[in-house]
């Protein structure tokens, strides 16, 4: 019984290590290669697929979360007469925390799972194999443009999320709840520093973008060429990406506050 359990743990550990090795190999082959100008239109295409087509969900979510933050913040701050600090609170929470994290989670659910499904299906239908046999490297043609596309768009989506969230917060606080517009914006302007706050959020979203698109590509490329394999791969993309985003968020926050 014990030996059986140990064997299973050993096998799990070995499979995990082997999977990490394959993921690192895929990443290094996608990154370490001679730049090819023919990839630029492909990267632009991926920026459209992964970024532009995610704008709607990012804008809607950013608006809803910004509005809720303003509402929640107002109900607490008005008790101590500090509702003028509402703009600062909403901006800091969005720019440093909620913006990068929620946009990365949404990106994993919309774009990451789509990338995994697309590559997994290309593998299952032998499109990747046929591309190899035509003499075109699928790592260069399929994987690398998606990697760069995803890596570039997530920080931009996170910024967009924060901007829309702050705007929604101002609509709720200033136009609806009657917080003085001057104090809402001026306290925010004085309290939010580009390098101390905005940059930290951008760094977070760069790291999240790297991790989410890497997981998405690897899960698709390494998926079993069956319907069950594809389903498992897309689920893994969303689950692993979400867990890694939250874990990394903790460590990045820890590092940035220099505790």
């Amino acid at each position: 019984m014990l030996i059986h359990a140990l064997r299973r743990i050993g096998r799990f550990g070995f499979e995990m290590l082997s999977s990490m090795g394959r993921a690192l190999r895929l990443l290094s082959s996608a990154l370490i290669r001679r730049p090819d100008h023919r990839n630029i239109p492909l990267i632009i295409g991926q920026i459209y697929q992964l970024g532009v087509l995610s704008i709607l969900i990012i804008v809607c979510s950013g608006f809803a979360i910004g509005a809720v933050l303003a509402l929640q913040g107002y109900t607490q701050l008005v008790r101590v007469g500090s509702e003028s600090a509402l703009g600062l609170g909403v901006a800091l929470v969005l720019v440093m925390e909620i913006g990068p994290v929620v946009s990365a989670l949404l990106f994993a659910g919309r774009a990451g799972s789509a990338v995994t499904a697309e590559i997994g299906l290309m593998k299952a239908t032998e499109q990747l194999a046929s591309m190899e046999m035509i003499g075109v490297d699928p790592i260069s043609r399929i994987i690398a443009p998606r990697f760069w596309g995803g890596f570039i768009v997530l920080p931009l989506l996170a910024l967009m999320f924060s901007v829309v969230g702050i705007w929604a917060g101002s609509l709720v606080a200033v136009d609806w709840l009657g917080v003085y517009s001057g104090s809402f914006w001026s306290v925010m302007e004085q309290g939010v520093d580009f390098f101390d706050h905005v940059m930290k959020g951008i760094i977070k979203s760069i790291v999240f973008g790297f991790v989410v698109i890497w997981i998405s590509l690897y899960q698709g490329y390494d998926s079993l060429p069956t319907s069950e394999g594809l389903s498992k791969a897309t689920t893994n993309t969303v689950v692993f990406s979400s867990v890694w985003i939250l874990v990394l968020d903790f460590f990045l926050t820890l590092m940035m506050f220099e505790l």
Binding site: M122, T125, E126, Q127, A129, S130, M131, M133, G135
Partner: peptide, 13 residues
């Protein structure tokens, strides 16, 4: 300088 016809066709969808 090689060509291959796959059993499934494997056309780019």
């Amino acid at each position: 300088c090689l060509g291959m016809l796959f059993q499934s066709g494997a056309l780019f969808s």
